[in-house]
Amino acid sequence: MLRVGISFAISIIISFIFLPILWADVDVLKGPHADDAKTINLKMSYRVSAPDKTYRARFVLLLPSTLPYRQKVISKKWIVPPTKIHKRGDSTYAEWILDRPKGEIDVGCELKIELYPFDYSGLSRDVGYKADYLKDYLMPEKYLETRSQPIMDLAKKVAPANESGGILLHSLFKGTLNNLDRFKFANEAKGAKGALKLGGGDCTDFTDVLVSLSRVRKLPARHVHGILAASFNDTPKHSWAEVYVPQNGWVRLDPFLAKLKKASFRNLKNYYITLTYDRNNGIYSKKNGISYWRYWSWGDPIAVTERLDCGFGVFKERVSSIRGE
């Protein structure tokens, strides 16, 4: 009887010790800031306008997906169900094939997304990535010209050779801000080399420079494309960086908003919707740089009108291949 009582007591003690750990594992997707989560309703709507002699149209859209510590897609409602869903790396694409389209056809979806704070001030530790995965974020690529002499020289100039980890990252972050001025949004990407030559750029250019400097100094870094769930002037589409720091894991940084005094090295607002970590996804074509969406048509050309709405104003843009528009 005594032995049974001791065993029961031990099991109770073990339960009290390990239950918090088990419960913590349940929320690993959200990270330690689940109580500070923000729910966003995002509507991504695209109107395809097709003349009478268009016999096929194809439309591909980059979609938000659930990403640990960053965001969770709670629900998704299609305007018209897609023909296919594609996964490539961490990116998700919906594809619609429209045969014999006539007039105007709406495609897209409405999503409810839970966003979690994810910056250097937090306790999130998105760690544990293997070297084979991280090495891809150390390589040069289009717009991230890490073998360009001006970029290599700047990476050495802004941070002493003995700096590492978070201290090194902070120096590279400051170096980006000190060497770039804020320019208005531009559709044409300059790349890190071009941005340094011009002495400025938009959010894409600031991110290209920080990512390139980080890669030169052997900090894995990636260019993130997404949407800001906040009021905007030109567009809610935005770029920022994530850099992998030992002991901290991936860290989100926004040099462009920091230049505007709307963010800092350590603190970011919780309004980032991540779409892709691929700087040059191009939606099936590397030569196209980044594309949030893309269309093709057979027969007469088509036009697509985009409407993005996450509760802070509607962004609208029409892209047309129709002659005369």
Rank of each mutant, 00 (worst) to 15 (best):
K87L: 15
S75R: 10
L154M: 04
L134H: 01
S148F: 04
D153P: 09
A131C: 10
Y116R: 03
V107Q: 02
I97V: 15
A94W: 00
F118N: 09
K76Q: 14
K130M: 12
T83V: 06
T146Y: 03
G122V: 07
Y120V: 11
G89W: 10
D153H: 13
T83W: 03
E141N: 12
S75M: 06
D153Q: 15
V107L: 04
K156D: 14
A131V: 14
D132W: 14
M139P: 01
D99A: 09
E110S: 13
K72V: 11
V73Q: 07
R88E: 15
P140S: 11
E110C: 03
P101A: 05
K84S: 13
C109L: 03
S148A: 14
I79K: 01
R147Q: 04
T83E: 00
G128Q: 01
S124E: 09
Y137D: 02
Y143A: 07
E141Q: 13
L123C: 07
L123G: 15
Y129A: 08
P82E: 02
G108Q: 04
V73S: 04
K102F: 11
K135S: 14
V80C: 03
C109Y: 04
L98W: 05
D119Y: 07
A155V: 01
T146C: 09
L134D: 02
Y116M: 11
K157M: 07
G103K: 12
P140T: 00
G108A: 04
L144D: 05
L111D: 02
T146H: 02
R147K: 10
P101C: 06
M139S: 13
S91I: 12
M152G: 10
A94R: 07
I113S: 10
L111Q: 08
R147A: 06
